[in-house]
């Protein structure tokens, strides 16, 4: 079984980011990039599945040369080989899904893991788009995953609870926090990763369906205010919630 895992290289959530001069991207200077945290769960689940059933795990990532770092991190965690789908353009979710789908097809992989979203642009669409392009089944936001023959059972998070669903291969699973505890890249794994192959393939051009017009920093939140400590503050609170916050 060839298991594919798709990862993205994203700014560390702890870093403060700045918008670049073009107003459409972030300024990468001084930003540390990491393997997308949700993709770490995907890598872990792919490795666990391989350990249970055998086979091989291939990691795919779309982007510029920088994403090789994240591919190598996945290799260090234990993934067998890497494919770098190279492009220097900022692709929209559809174009990324198309690139991944093409490669998954040529790999002949029937089980694909990826994070439920990447924490940079947070579109949360790539998993489902890829599945649709490949006519694969898909289960999103999974917190458990179980494979038995051809049958997949998974729990997924829904508003206020969990849903248990069943489907069959071929399938794309998108990972939610809680699916597993990702392993560390051991020092031996890091040494071994040096000898593993990363194939580089150009991404075929796909016209963008979504255009990024502008990025804006969120407006700073006002600090909380204490209006009083007993019921006498209620009228003022109601007034402010109505007139200032406009929530009631």
């Amino acid at each position: 079984m060839k298991i594919a895992v798709c990862v993205s290289h994203v700014p560390d959530t702890a870093t403060r980011i700045k918008i670049a001069a073009d107003q459409k991207s972030i300024d990468p200077a001084g930003v540390s990039f990491v393997l997308n945290p949700y993709d770490e769960y995907a890598v872990e689940e792919a490795l666990k599945t391989k350990e249970k059933f055998g086979g091989e795990v291939v990691v795919l990532s779309v982007g510029g040369d920088r994403v090789k770092e994240t591919i190598r991190k996945s290799l260090a965690m234990g993934v067998d080989e890497g494919v770098h789908l190279k492009t220097d353009e900022a692709l929209d979710s559809f174009a990324i899904a198309q690139a991944l789908a093409d490669e998954i097809k040529s790999l002949g992989s029937e089980l694909v893991f990826m994070g439920k979203q990447s924490v940079d642009y947070d579109s949360g669409m790539v998993g489902q788009l890829t599945a649709e392009l490949l006519s694969f089944n898909s289960i999103s936001v999974c917190v458990t995953f179980n494979l038995d023959g051809n049958t997949i059972t998974a729990e997924r998070e829904i508003e206020g609870g969990k849903e248990i669903v069943e489907t069959s291969l071929p399938c794309i699973i998108t990972a939610q926090k809680g699916l597993n505890e990702p392993r560390y890249a051991s020092l031996k794994g890091i040494m071994a990763a040096k000898k593993k192959v990363i194939q580089e393939k150009p991404v075929a051009s796909t016209p963008a369906l979504v255009e990024n017009l502008q990025l804006k920093m969120p407006t700073a939140k006002n600090p909380g205010r204490i209006l009083g400590t007993d019921s006498s503050a209620v009228p003022e609170l109601v007034k402010l919630l109505h007139e200032e916050a406009k929530v009631i």
Binding site: E69, R72, K73, A76, Y184, A185, S186, L187, I190, K194
Partner: peptide, 9 residues
């Protein structure tokens, strides 16, 4: 990069 990756571990 390898040294950094080990430090990250």
């Amino acid at each position: 990069e390898d040294q950094k990756m080990m430090a990250d571990t």
